[in-house]
Structures are given as C-alpha cells and as structure tokens.
C-alpha cells in the first residue's frame, strides 16, 4: 500500500515540476495565463503564448522523455551488470554519439561558434543523425561481442574500453580543430533539452516510447536476473537472449536521448538508486513506474535550475545534473554498508 502512495506522490511531483518548468524561466508566466495558453486561448501578454508554444512546451516534453529514458536505461544496466555504478553509458553509447557529433562539428566546415543556427534545420538534423550513427556503431560492436561473451562482467569491461578508444578519436579530432569548432562541440557536450524542435519531436517521442514499451516487457527477466545468471537460467530464462534484449532496449533509450539532447550525466545513475531507497525494494515491477516519474521530474527540475529563473543567464545542463546527482549517489553509497548490495 505504501508503495502505491509513494508512486502517487511521485506522479504529483512530476505534474508540479512540469507546471513549474512551463511557468518559470527568464520571464515568469502566471498559472492562470499558462492554463489559458495550454487550453488554446490567449494570454494577457501575447508573447507569452509564443514562448510557451515554441520554447517551453517542447523543452519540457523533451526533459520528460529524456529523464525517463535515461533513468529506465540506467536501472536496466545496473541490474544487468549487477553493478551499482552502471549507468546508461557504461557500454560507450555516449562516447559513440560524441564521436559522431565530433566528426560532424570538428571536420565539417562550420561557420563560427553558432554552428547549429548557421546550418539551420539541416545542421540540426545532421547532428542528431551523426550522434545516432555513432551510438549505433559502438552498440553494434558491443552486441556482436555479447553473443560470444559468457559473463556480463566481461561485457562491461569491453564496453568501458570501447568508450576509452572512442574518446581517444575525439581527442585527436579536437587537437586538430579550430577553437570555434571546439567551442560548438563543447557546447553539445553540455547537454540541452532545448534543441528538440516540434518537427523532430515525433521521431524522438516514437524512439523513447518504443524503448519504454520494451522496458516494461523486460521487467520479469530483470527480476529473475536479480538472483544472478545461473538462477535466472534455472528458472527458465534464456539469459543470452534476455541480455541482448535489455541491451538493445537500454541503448535505444540512451542513444536516442544522447542524439537529441547531448550526453546528460548522472540522471541515469542517480534516479534508480533514489527510487530503490524510496520504495525500499529492487523489484522492477515497482521500480519501473517510479523511475519513470522521478527521472522525468528530476530532468525538469535540473533544467529549471539550469535556466536560473528570473535571470537572463543559464548554466550548462550537465553541470546541474551532476551537482544534483553526485550527492545522491555519494549519500546512497555511504548509507549502505556494502556497496555491492546497493542495486
């Protein structure tokens, strides 16, 4: 029963965070006007409707989708690898995406520091495509290897090595790039929920929903994997097949998010831990909805903080998620006597 209450609380929290992220920003839009705008009516200041429709609503939706995707993906990776420090990117998905973006940004002749604006929609999409291709390429390698590897631990180490190797290529590209290109690449690595346009939204939404659907189908195998691969096998689970499905699933979620929003740190690591503490269980049937809500909420709040409401300035999104996420994980690890039991 108490789990139901926690889940309901988390959902309410999500609604509040969603409302706040629409209402707060460089200009504050009162709730009454906000509801009017969302209902299709007019606001007391006409510009507000434009702000909500073209900037805040897509940004808030993106935050919800991205936060959910990363958190669910992190939960899956932590269980699959039986490792409390696993996150959506342990297999080098974000390194692959970074390489894709780095190739586009650092080698294609970009004009000045405003690359995305300069190239317009085409440039916008090409970044997403490059990141998707990069993430997909790394994941393809991991998947090929996973068919031949017995233990998940080996796979984890291989994934880490892929990440390092890909990172090395990025370093080389940066070394030969001009400062303006480097700046726009760095800008991408800061992450942002604000770059998904309405035209891109259907693709992004479809990818995330596909991932979430798969994630709910993977709940039972993941619960079995809590006992370890041998027990899972003895209960009738085809461990290799389940592992591939979970990897595909977690990588769709992480890859799509990274492609559209850049590499967002710590959400995927911290949210599953937070949910386990709140619900006091590792049962994925209870965790999955909670992680979905809390991931979206934290993403919205992080974005809200990053935009420093009431001021014209903004912080890098990644800095904010790390500043929120790191204390959560530290607190969680210190709280448990045995970190290996912390997932």
């Amino acid at each position: 029963m108490s789990r139901r209450i926690v889940a309901l609380g988390l959902f309410l929290l999500l609604l509040i965070a969603f409302g706040l992220s629409l209402s707060l920003g460089s200009v504050r839009i009162p709730l009454g006007d906000l509801l009017g705008i969302l209902a299709g009516g007019d606001a007391s200041v006409p510009a507000w409707a434009i702000i909500v429709h073209t900037i805040r609503l897509p940004k808030a939706l993106t935050a919800v989708l991205a936060g959910t995707a990363l958190s669910v993906s992190g939960l899956q990776m932590q269980t699959l690898f039986r490792n409390p420090l696993a996150d959506p990117f342990v297999l080098g998905i974000n390194a692959g995406a970074s390489l894709g973006v780095a190739i586009v940004v650092l080698t294609v002749g970009s004009v000045g520091g405003v690359l995305i604006a300069g190239l317009g929609l085409l440039g916008d999409l090409s970044l997403v495509a490059a990141a998707s291709l990069g993430a997909g390429a790394v994941f393809g390698c991991v998947l090929l290897i996973s068919a031949r590897v017995q233990s998940a631990m080996t796979l984890l180490i291989l994934g880490l090595m892929f990440g390092y190797a890909t990172g090395a290529f990025v370093s080389i590209l940066i070394y030969f790039a001009i400062p303006e290109q480097i700046q726009s690449y760095i800008l991408w690595t800061f992450g942002s929920f604000g770059s998904v346009t309405w035209r891109q939204m259907p693709v992004f939404t479809a990818a995330i929903f596909l991932g979430l659907l798969l994630a709910f189908l993977c709940v039972k195998p993941l619960n079995a994997l809590l006992l370890g691969e041998n027990y899972a096998r003895s209960m009738g689970l085809n461990v290799k097949r389940a592992r591939v499905w979970v990897l595909v699933n977690a990588s769709i979620l992480a890859g799509a998010t990274t492609a559209f929003c850049g590499p967002i740190a710590f959400l995927g690591l911290a949210v599953p831990h937070l949910c386990r503490s709140l619900l006091h269980t590792s049962d994925h049937r209870a965790l999955m909805p909670a992680v979905t809500c809390l991931g979206a909420t934290l993403a919205l709040l992080a974005d809200l903080i990053a935009h420093l409401p009431g001021s014209p300035y903004a912080l890098p999104l990644n800095a904010v998620t790390s500043l929120i996420g790191a204390p959560i994980v530290i607190g969680f690890i210190l709280h448990r006597k045995n970190a290996s039991q912390a997932f």
Partner: peptide, 30 residues
C-alpha cells in the same frame, strides 16, 4: 536448484525472493 552462487540481490524481502521461484509459472510481467 539451490546453488553456491553469491546472491548480491539488493533490497529484496525473503518473501519476494521466494516469489521469484514462481517465475516459470507466472505471466509476462510476473
């Protein structure tokens, strides 16, 4: 089976662990 494998299971009550034994009998979401 009961194996010698270490159970690094996280936060699971004994009852929930026993319920996992129903795995081959339950539906898609368990």
């Amino acid at each position: 089976v009961v194996l010698t494998d270490r159970i690094g299971i996280g936060i699971v009550s004994a009852r929930d662990l026993v319920a996992l034994g129903r795995y081959p009998h339950t539906n898609w979401i368990g």
